[in-house]
Write a protein that binds this DNA or RNA. Structure first.
Length: 323
DNA sequence: AAGACGGGGGG
DNA sequence: CCCCCAGTCTT
């Protein structure tokens, strides 16, 4: 029994005993998996679960989603953030249906390369769907897997050597026990989420600590073995961002929320939308220009439709969710 | 390589 | 208030 297979056995056993019972772990339906993985992009599990259940109740199949009103899809996304994901998910469903699914099962891509061509599906999600829906032994990196692989095989992330993304993917691929990619990838992701966390890894109860390069290095640096704890890891400095509540992102969210509250097909002119979005809305030229710019960006993203009305001044232009 | 893109929960 | 989180797409 070599080192890698011992490591594999230990993690799989840990996952078997400690893995959470999450709804998307009970299915291989590619549509369900696609929905869950899209929702899980930059969004925590606990917040996704209720939205996932509600979304599938509303749009039970790829065909249902493809033919739904985009407004309803955007409404169902409320609270999840990154609303473009909702639009892209529906577009992906439309592409899959256009490719002949479900009459032709091959209309639903089952390889990372095929999935990668769908809108909103990148390097991570294409691998995750290929693995979790189609049980392919493919490697992919999310923030958890990336961190675990890095610590396990290279060392603490704040110390050299630097590693490339491709190197970590190669390592991740080598770790997958053939034929058990589904369980393995769930397990390593779960370890990163529950034990090998970013700021305060709980190495003392990690099933892989005896196999882990970072653990060995951290522990060697500390002579108090009994009281040993990994160092508190300082978050990487990010570029200064303006306060969220004055940011573009915040107001975009406010605009979409205002439109969600409208009845189907109903629209709102900028003069009415403004006060719902901005506290100290004055309705002057500067305000209207500012709002129009945000609205224009949202229209570009497919999140709303706005009517260019040359007869009216800016205040009279109307906005609604896509039909 | 860097920024934009939401929102909620935790320290 | 700052940080983080099952990422993707566009400069």
């Amino acid at each position: 029994m070599n080192e890698t297979s011992a490591l594999q056995t230990d993690l799989l056993a840990w996952f078997q005993a400690n893995g959470r019972d999450l709804p998307w772990r009970r299915t291989r339906n590619p549509y369900y998996i696609l929905v869950s993985e899209t929702m899980l992009q930059q969004t925590q599990v606990d917040r996704v679960i209720p939205k996932y259940e509600a979304f599938l109740a509303l749009f039970p199949t790829v065909e249902a989603l493809a033919s739904a009103s985009t407004a309803d899809v955007i409404r169902s996304w409320q609270g999840l953030g990154y609303n473009r994901r909702a639009v892209n998910l529906q577009r992906a469903a439309q592409a899959i249906v256009a490719a002949g699914f479900p009459a032709d099962p091959a209309g639903f891509p089952n390889t990372p390369e095929g999935l990668r061509n769908l809108p909103g599906i990148g390097a991570y999600t294409s691998g995750a769907v290929a693995c979790f829906a189609f049980e392919r032994d493919v490697a992919f990196l999310d923030t958890n897997i990336r961190r675990v692989v890095r610590r396990l095989l290279v060392g603490p992330e704040d110390a050299p050597p630097a590693t490339t993304e491709q190197t970590l993917i190669d390592y991740a691929q080598q770790l997958i026990p053939p034929g058990q990619g589904w369980a393995w990838n769930q397990a390593i992701m779960e370890l990163g989420a529950l034990i090998c966390t970013a700021a305060k890894p709980q190495c003392w109860r990690c099933p892989l600590n005896q196999h882990c390069r970072a653990y060995a290095i951290w522990r060697e640096a500390n002579t108090q073995l009994d009281m040993w704890q990994p160092p508190v890891i300082k978050p990487r400095k990010k570029a200064a961002e303006q306060p969220f509540h004055s940011s573009n992102r915040y107001f975009r969210g406010r605009i979409i929320d205002a439109l969600r509250a409208l009845e189907a097909q109903q629209s709102l002119d900028l003069a009415s939308l403004g006060p719902q979005v901005k506290q100290d809305w004055l309705g002057n030229e500067a305000d209207l220009t500012w709002l129009a710019k945000l609205v224009s960006g949202l229209a570009q993203d497919g999140l709303l439709i706005w009517q260019y009305q040359p007869e009216q001044d800016l205040a009279g232009w109307s906005v609604r969710l896509p039909a």
